[in-house]
Amino acid sequence: MEKSQSEIRIIIVGIAKNPLGFMGLVIVGAIVFSAIFAAWIVPYDPIEMNIRDRMQGPSWSHLLGTDQLGRDTFSRVITGGQVALKVALPAVFGAMAIGLTLGMVAGYGPKWLDNFLMLLFDTIRSFPTVMFALAVVALVGPSLQTVVLVVMATSIPTYGRVARTQTLTLRNSEFILAERSMGASMARILGVHMLPNIIGVLAVLAAMDIPTVIALEAGLSFLGLGVKPPTPSWGALLKDGYALVRQTPWLVIGGGLPIIVATLGFTFLGESLRDVVDPKLRKNQ
């Protein structure tokens, strides 16, 4: 346990040393922080209407103004971040865990299983994500869980393929042969020796994937197929703002800016994570 803690510290210090990585850490940290403590941060109830104060610009009492129903945009943005993470984190980590397992089995297991899993992955990937999402939502109705499920299902193949390629490269490396020569079981080889060498690559992929999922959630909510109103979501904010852009630009900014900032933050984090998880690059420091 002590080892993995120091590993995590090395990774975080490594990311923070890179200016972009530092920015990524700060942004992602702020988003996560505001999502966790949203209830204490928001000055107003994000779904409480106040018709008298509708469509205001920024002021001290409403930092980002209000929407057409007089709801505080700042509060809705913060709560929307919470919703975005509630979708993105389980979807991405779920897809990563399942993709990793299937990919490693495909890469290390028998050829027929590999062929079968690859066929499965290719089949899933051949559905256009948005069409697939629309179909599922049409069937079971819009909800947070549906979005999570759809996103997870469509991103499993990506993780699976990467994990499989990594496994195939590693399986013929000398240290795996050495483990086999000592009689290590398949579970031990996969879990103890391959996993730590694959997970870094997937973690990078996941960090870069989170903004895509946030954008997808926003997109689905924009189309009215994501999170049900009045629950605030960045996509829903954007949708309202789009309709009212002639009257006030603040709603579009309130909905669009967080998506841009979150995308940048996670991408910076992912890119600097990529540089840090490679032990060969780390050695040169």
Partner: peptide, 11 residues
Amino acid sequence: FQDPVGSLSPR
């Protein structure tokens, strides 16, 4: 094995 470093599990 041939490669002294490469035959040791890197992590």
